[in-house]
Structures are given as structure tokens and as C-alpha cells.
Design a protein around this nucleic acid. Structure first.
Length: 501
RNA sequence: GGGGCGGUAGCUCAGCUGGUUAGAGCAGGGGACUCAUAAUCCCUGGGUCGCGGGUUCGAGCCCCGCCCGCCCUACCA
């Protein structure tokens, strides 16, 4: 039994969450639940990044105080918990949690004491959407390549962090795998970036430019801390790093695994800046950074700033959380962007959930009612079940190794080996034929009927159990369906009703 | 400009260190069965594995060039 810590990125709260962030939350949730199921102690953190200038500007645009906008929108992120069936243990808000500010202060001072902070005049083109500076030639027609907006010319004196100092260490850490970046293509991308040479970066803004919003630089009232600097800190400030609390020691310093789940757009912050900050502060590093790609919807890019964001709760309201979680896990490849359409969502739901597992459980429970009055038969000797038992034996290990690689699609496929094999098994053994023979006085057939029905029920239990990290709610319903009450199974009821269109 | 990742059956994707007739799921076609949510099970795919060369006894998997998509990166005039 070991302690493991997993986090998502914390999104800006300038608007409501979209489907892409729902995917990240679900992915992290599956890993967290899987770890718990395999007996580890787990802490799962998510939260919101409140201190962004874009939040302040969004509030200005709405004509409300920043605090009000941030509180309101942060709530919508937190509210995903129920609909998406998330199991996070903690939710941090960088503007509202005292532990965050205390932790950021400590982190700042620790890097200062290492001699890694200095003041410098800087002039550059800053994109508020990205919260980062761009070189002129990185722009497309003078516009930010991500947001297609004109960056503003900023000229002021800021604090800088000596990132350049950590170039060799970072390269060694990533090359050696002590800091694991998955998938490998992302790791190579990061190494490529490091090899071109690391430059110190600005880690503060003037209070005026920040609209007075953000965390003050310790000992410098004219500056607030660069939003990325404080945001990255959330992974440890949430653990009371600031007060050196027990959570920090348990879940960061002494944990076996510290995994960050992030999207491809913020790899550099997590695989370069963040580890360097930690090295400077004398704090241990994360062990793994898993990078997912993006979602498109109906073939189009998805983005809050691009105006076609899709609300995950709307999908859940219409098709259910099982359908959405399942699509995100079962249909999204590990590498490459995936396109979301409602047709694909419904297709996956029907094929796998309704026709596959749902039908398997339904037919199994129905037969036990029909032939055994709802009483669960003992399995004396499994009959013609080699393939089925092999599938049952192999699935958990296959799921483990797939999730070790963050390959959700392969993990769910491994689980479905059981379901598919069980549906074949039903046709193979023809319980209805055995039932007729039994009725005609064939005791051997009767014995075999009990064995096969008992085995099928056991199979359903295994499948339901392994399904828990992926679809916790459906798995619980499935387990209830195959668990006797007063010696009898509940009446069969479709677990996954078909979606009428 | 350099680098990376993709380009495999109508669709979505697997193909480990190169090796018998290139796979899965879905869709389509045919059949079986009846326990079940018009579900399930079986059979059915002859696809220039982006294009063109090369290495090899043998390449989807290696090398070279090119085309398309996405991404990272760069002080061309």
C-alpha cells in the first residue's frame, strides 16, 4: 500500500468549463479510482486558476468585480463533480484559499534564497489569452497564433527566474526518466526545447497591468506574481506546503507517485518551468507528467476563446454521464486529437454499454430468474469455459498495464474482452437447451445449467467491479443487479436504456 | 528553414525488436438462435498499408526523396 498523488491542471475561470477539460478531469479520475481500487492511498486534486489577468478583463467586460466573476465561474468548475462523477479529494482556488498564498510566498522565498530571482527591465509582446510573451516572429500577421488577437507591447521592470541555470539538470532528469513525460513524443518535444537553450523568464507583473489582481510579490508591493508561477505552485500549496503541513510530507515528499495530467498546450510550463522552480526551491519533483491531446467537435477546434465551447453538462443532461464518460475513455485515442460527435457518443454507448455489458447482465439475471427462481446457483465445475475464464484472469493485469501508460482506450478494450467472451459463452452453452433437457429429467444438464449460470453471474460481477474506475455509477448499479437480496437477485432491469433519437 | 507525430478496409483505429495468405470494432451483405434492451452468436472485407525509389532472402514496420494534416522549434534575405 503506497501513497499516490494525482492532479489536473487548474483552468482559468474566465468562462465556463468545456468538453476538453471534462476529459482531463475524467482521465485523472479514472487513474485515481483505479489506484484506490488496487489498494493504494490516493489523493486527487483539481481546482481553478483565479489569478489570471484574463479573469480580471472578463470581469471588466461584464462590468462586475473580478472577485464576483471568479467566484461564480469557479463554482461551475467545481459543480462538474456531480455530473461527471468525479472523486477529487480536494479542490483548490488560487485566489480564495489562504493556504495557496502562504505556499506561494514560501516557494518564492525559497527560490529567492537560492539566488535565482533578479530584477530586470523587460519589453515584449504579451498575449493575455495565453498569459505569455511572444517573440515578434512567433506571431502570425502580428497576431497571437493561438488566439488571433493582437498582443500588447509591455515595457516594465519585472522579476526574473534563472531558468537557464537548470538546463542540464532538467535534461538529465527527463532523459533518465526520473521525470517521466508521457507519451514519448511529448518527452522528445520537451527535450528538444531544452536542448535549444533555456532562457530566464519573467515571473512578475506590475500591479497596474495586472489590474491589481493577483498575489503580491513578497517584499515588493508594486508587483504581483506571474500567474503561471503561482498557478503551478498549486500542486504543493494545496498540500499545505506553505506551513509544511502533514499533507505535504505525506502526499508530496514521501509519496510513491506524483502525477500531473495536463493538455498539450501547457507542456512547457509543466515539464520545464515547474520542475526548475522545484529544483530551485529544494522541493522534490513530480514523477510523471501525462499529456493528452485536444478534442474537436464536429471537426472544429474547441476553445473558450474561439467561441464554440461545448458544455459537458449539456451533454450529460441529454445523454447521461455514463455515455459521456464512456465516450471520452473508450473512443479517444492516446495520441492525436479526437473528434466528438453525438453520433459517435451514441454509437459507443449502444454498442458497448447497452448491447454489450447491459445486455449480458440483463440476460444472465433473466435466466437465473427463469430457470432458478432468482437464486444464485453454485458453480461446481465450470463447463466449456476455458476462454471465458482466461479472459477473466487476464483482464485485470491488462487494465493495469494499459493505465500505467495512460491508455484508456486499451484499458477499456481489455475489460471488454470479458464482456465479449461472456456473450459468446451464452450462445456456446445454450442454457435454454440445458433447461429443456433438465425439465425432461436430465440431471447432468441441470447440473451444467447451474454451473453455467453461476459462472455467468460471477463474470458479471468481475466485469462490474473492473468497470468501477471508468463508470463508477453504472458499475454500482450493475453490482446491485447481480447481488442477491434475501437470497434472490433483483428483477432484471436494463442498466443502459437505449437512447431514443 | 530544422525537428516530431500522423497519413493502414466506407468510418474509427490496432499492428511488438522487419518474416507464413495485413488485423479489430462499427457500417454493409448472408445465416443461426431465442435467455436478453429489435439484443446475441456465426460467416462475409481481397484494402496500390499517402506517392516514388532503395536496403534485404523477405518491409506497413529500416533508409532516401516527395505530397497532405497536426504540433514543436528557429536572429533567411
Amino acid at each position: 500500500m503506497s501513497r499516490r498523488y494525482i492532479t489536473t491542471a487548474i483552468p482559468y475561470v474566465n468562462s465556463k468549463p468545456h468538453l476538453g477539460f471534462a476529459m482531463e478531469l475524467v482521465q485523472a479520475d479514472v487513474i485515481a479510482r483505479h489506484w484506490r481500487q488496487r489498494g493504494h492511498q490516493v489523493r486527487f486534486l483539481t481546482g481553478t486558476d483565479d489569478n489570471s489577468l484574463k479573469n480580471a478583463l472578463a470581469a471588466e467586460a461584464e462590468g462586475i468585480p473580478t472577485r464576483e466573476l471568479v467566484d461564480r465561474n469557479a463554482q461551475t468548475f467545481h459543480d462538474l463533480r456531480g455530473p461527471l462523477m468525479l472523486s477529487f479529494d480536494d479542490f483548490i482556488r488560487t485566489s480564495a484559499d489562504p493556504r495557496h498564498q502562504v505556499g506561494v510566498d514560501r516557494l518564492w522565498k525559497a527560490t529567492e534564497e537560492s539566488g535565482d530571482l533578479y530584477r530586470k527591465h523587460y519589453e515584449g509582446l504579451y498575449c493575455i489569452g495565453c498569459e505569455q510573451f511572444y517573440a515578434e516572429d512567433e506571431l502570425r500577421d502580428g497576431l497571437c497564433p493561438e488566439h488571433h488577437t493582437r498582443p500588447q507591447l509591455v515595457s516594465e521592470e519585472n522579476w526574473f527566474f534563472k531558468l537557464s541555470r537548470y538546463e542540464d539538470q532538467l535534461r538529465d532528469l527527463i532523459e533518465s526518466g526520473r521525470l517521466r513525460v508521457e507519451p514519448a513524443s511529448r518527452r522528445n518535444e520537451v527535450l528538444g526545447f531544452i536542448r535549444t537553450g533555456l532562457q530566464d523568464f519573467s515571473i512578475s507583473r506590475s500591479v497596474e497591468r495586472a489590474r491589481g489582481w493577483g498575489i503580491p510579490v513578497p517584499g515588493d508591493d508594486d508587483q504581483v506574481i506571474y500567474v503561471w508561477w503561482d498557478a503551478l505552485g498549486n500542486y504543493i500549496t494545496a498540500l499545505d506546503y506553505g506551513t509544511d503541513g502533514p499533507h505535504y510530507r505525506d502526499w508530496w515528499v514521501n509519496s510513491e507517485d506524483r502525477t500531473h495530467v495536463i493538455g498539450k498546450g501547457i507542456v512547457r510550463f509543466h515539464a520545464v518551468y515547474w520542475p526548475a522552480m522545484l529544483l530551485s526551491a529544494g522541493v522534490s519533483l513530480p514523477s510523471t507528467i501525462f499529456v493528452h491531446d485536444y478534442l474537436t467537435v464536429d471537426g472544429k477546434k474547441l476553445g473558450k476563446s474561439l467561441g464554440n465551447a461545448i458544455d459537458p453538462t449539456a451533454i450529460i443532461d441529454e445523454y447521461g454521464a455514463d455515455a459521456l464518460r464512456w465516450w471520452l475513455l473508450r473512443d479517444v485515442p492516446r495520441v492525436g486529437d479526437a473528434d466528438f460527435t453525438t453520433d459517435r457518443l451514441i454509437g459507443r454507448y449502444h454498442e458497448d454499454l447497452a448491447n454489450g455489458l447491459g445486455n449480458l447482465i440483463n440476460r444472465t439475471v433473466s435466466m437465473i430468474h427463469k430457470y432458478r427462481d432468482g437464486r444464485v446457483p453454485d458453480v461446481v465445475e465450470p463447463w466449456r469455459a476455458n476462454k471465458l475464464t482466461a479472459a477473466i484472469d487476464q483482464a485485470p493485469g491488462a487494465i493495469d498495464s494499459a493505465l500505467e501508460r495512460f491508455d484508456f482506450r486499451q484499458a477499456t478494450a481489455a475489460l471488454w474482452q470479458i464482456v465479449d467472451e461472456a456473450n459468446r459463452y451464452v450462445v456456446e452453452v445454450e442454457p435454454w437447451t440445458l433447461a429443456k433437457a433438465e425439465k425432461a429429467g436430465d440431471e447432468v444438464a441441470g447440473r451444467r445449467l447451474s454451473d453455467t449460470l453461476g459462472l455467468l453471474l460471477q463474470t458479471c460481477r468481475v466485469a462490474a467491479n473492473e468497470l468501477t474506475p471508468f463508470l463508477p455509477d453504472a458499475a454500482a448499479r450493475a453490482i446491485a443487479q447481480v447481488s442477491p437480496l434475501a437470497e434472490r437477485l433483483p428483477q432484471p432491469e436494463p442498466l443502459f436504456p437505449r437512447i431514443e433519437t
